[in-house]
Amino acid sequence: MGKLLKKEMKLTASPLSYWFILFSFMTFLPGYPILVGGFFVCLGIFFTYQQAVEYDDITFSALLPIRKKDVVKAKYAFVIIIQMISFVLSALFTVLRMTLLSEAKVYLVNQMMNANLFYLGFLLLVFAVFNTCFMKGFFKTAYRIGKPFIIFCIAGFLLIGVGEMLHHLPGMEALNSTSGTSLIQAFVLLFGIVIYVVQTLISMNSSERNFEKIDL
């Protein structure tokens, strides 16, 4: 599996998948729907799949002396690594916004989502939606990328919309606080972690089964 992961990173990956991690810096943007940064990180991963189809990477991988299901595992490992680097960066920037930059003028009045635990929980949900819609959708055919990506775009932006709307509802203002002591925010983060782990595992298992069945 380690060798296949190296292959993913050195041969299959589009450089854009790495560059688009920098969209995590959107965490710092004031007055902007910062969850869109998570969408762009997923868009970067999508470019790798566009390239993989062009390179006929799946056939090349399936012909290597490996177990076929390890191809799927390595592809998920690559996606998880990109998402986790982005998540850790976003978490660091969130801590900065909640501490050193908490009094910064640009953040004091913000109609949009603040960088806090609620944001991090929703960021994981955006990644979970990508792994469910795009990754699982791709491995149904191992060549079709358009339809699963469009489904992810629709679901992802709906989720971002819900995230941006929630803290405007009466009684839900705490979701946007930057004090760092909100229990409800911690709950959303925990919920995001659980959903990300569970959905990614379900998606990977389903992709392994589908990949064994399809004709290349």
């Binding site: 041969l11 062009e54 390179y55 006929d56 090349f60």
Partner: peptide, 12 residues
């Protein structure tokens, strides 16, 4: 068929 069309032989 060209696997990894834009990669150098030594990298593949």
């Amino acid at each position: 068929v060209s696997y990894y069309n834009r990669k150098r032989i030594c990298d593949i």
